[in-house]
């Protein structure tokens, strides 16, 4: 999917919602912001001090694969330049602190593949936070998550955003984030268009009504 007309910037304290129909190019846009996909025209400019945090929708994994929650979070600290030897003690403490922040410290030793969808999501969020990012990208963080977990995530993101972290989130359910969003982008039919956040919400409500 090619998305045209993207003109956006993320600065300290911004909270961007990205919505639109399925297959419209939302994830393509997010992956381009992440640097996984190249821009076909135009450019993607970043500050030298950029530290990206990434929370995918899910990571498909064999449940018996021997990766525990702490292993997954420590992967968030594997930055280039420390390929030969990581500082294990330091990594462990940072990973546990990040798990504590998302309320998963008591499950640090549990196999990642055996955690529920919501718990996996929190571990992936801890992995993103372990590096103390200044920009956080999230892909459908509330997909398959119960209302309590959505509320916890909303409180956590409100704190982080209040501390100055910029957030960009792809979501089909804009409602929980309307109080935090500073901007919104509607991506569909190969085009990206800035819209007021409540318009995304109204479209989402209309779409659920149409499916009901």
């Amino acid at each position: 999917m090619v998305v045209r007309g993207v003109d956006l910037s993320l600065a300290k304290g911004d909270f961007l919602l990205v919505g639109g129909p399925n297959g419209g190019g939302k994830s393509t846009l997010l992956r381009t912001l992440l640097g996984v996909l190249p821009t076909l025209a135009g450019e993607r400019r970043t500050d030298s001090g950029l530290r990206l945090g990434w929370v995918p929708q899910q990571v498909p994994l064999d449940p018996r694969y021997p990766l525990d929650a702490q292993d997954v979070v420590r992967m968030g600290l594997w930055v280039p330049g420390r390929l030969l030897r990581g500082r294990r003690g330091e990594e462990r403490l940072a990973a546990l602190a990040a798990l504590e922040r998302v309320g998963m410290a008591d499950r640090a030793g549990r196999l990642f593949g055996e955690l529920s969808g919501g718990q996996q999501q929190r571990v992936l969020l801890a992995r993103a936070l372990a590096r103390r990012p200044n920009v956080l990208l999230l892909d459908e963080p509330t997909s398959g998550v119960d209302a309590g977990a959505v509320e916890s995530l909303r409180e956590l993101l409100a704190d982080l955003n209040g501390e100055g972290m910029a957030v960009a989130m792809v979501t089909h359910q804009p409602a929980p984030w309307l109080g935090l969003a500073t901007a919104a982008l509607r991506v569909g039919h190969g085009e990206a268009r800035p819209v007021p956040p409540y318009e995304l919400h109204a479209e989402s409500v209309a779409a659920s009504g149409a499916h009901a």
Binding site: L34, L52, W54, M75, P80, R82, L83, L84, R131, L137
Partner: peptide
């Protein structure tokens, strides 16, 4: 041995590998 972290991470989650700026 030298590249195990990038190899492991890009196997597990290539997008996270990109987020960390790994080659």
């Amino acid at each position: 041995v030298a590249c195990r972290r990038t190899v492991l991470l890009s196997a597990f989650d290539p997008e996270q590998s990109a987020a960390l700026g790994q080659p």
